[in-house]
Amino acid sequence: MVAIAQVDAASLVVRDVKKSFPAPDNPLSRRQALDGVSFSLAAGELVSLVGPSGCGKSTLLRLVAGLDFADAGDLLVGSEPITQPNAERGLVFQDPNLFPWLTVRRNIQAGLVARGVLQEKKNEVDQFMRLVGLESFANVYPHHLSGGMAQRAALARALINHPKVLLLDEPLGALDAFTRMRMQDEVLRIWEARRTTMLLVTHDIDEAIYMSDRIMIMTPRPGRIERTIEVGLGRPRQRDSTDFLRLRSDILNYLHFAGQK
């Protein structure tokens, strides 16, 4: 186990955000990807965002990260409006996107180098490599890593900046079921130790229930948050407890995926 200092988490407010893109078939018209998305996360909360493919989850995360601009609406971290990317808002992308020209260690310390604080924080690099179990792969280039290892390295790379808000875009989507459950516990442990505010995009209902305080369900075309569900189970959670399973079947019924009765 690695001792991790707590950070002062920040609240996140998204108010009536709209975002459109040029329609792929007709460059003159625009297609609404997000249409009036509103929600807020208290400091230190872990909230999941689920929804079908193409409903605008990644688009929303990019807006919160500051990589794109909203057409309308407000995005606030604490009381500061989001204007540009910042090391205080970490983003783990859907693909690991490790820099192929850097070794695992250098990838993980990239945030420290970018902020010019590598000298002071050098010892943290080893800590975070141990945290994600990659200490023996420090000098390996990313193309030698399996998908799961690459995603873990990407997670460590985002965590090393101690972001106040961590945005996770299906970070475990590419992993096999076993690694995935292990990593869920790992992310939870990091969250519990540091109380970072986390917004987790996932396709996996079980993952959402297992991990989050609340689950936001998004609908496509135009993207909106349709419903928010309080999970309200104690932690640590059991994946097979009756409450867990009842909540699971509620959500599946709500999404009409429960199957033929």
Binding site: R62, A65, G66, L67, Q84, P85, N86, A87, R89, G90, L91, F93, D95, N97, F99, W101, L102, A110, G111, V113, A114, R115, R157, A158, N161
Partner: peptide
């Protein structure tokens, strides 16, 4: 673009983006 996006969310300025992302990627 995703390499540049990653670097920006890690707190990179223009110097890092040019010399440590764009140039290595272009090598």
């Amino acid at each position: 673009a995703s390499y540049l996006d990653v670097a920006r969310t890690l707190g990179a300025g223009p110097g890092y983006l040019i010399f440590r992302v764009a140039i290595p990627a272009a090598l």
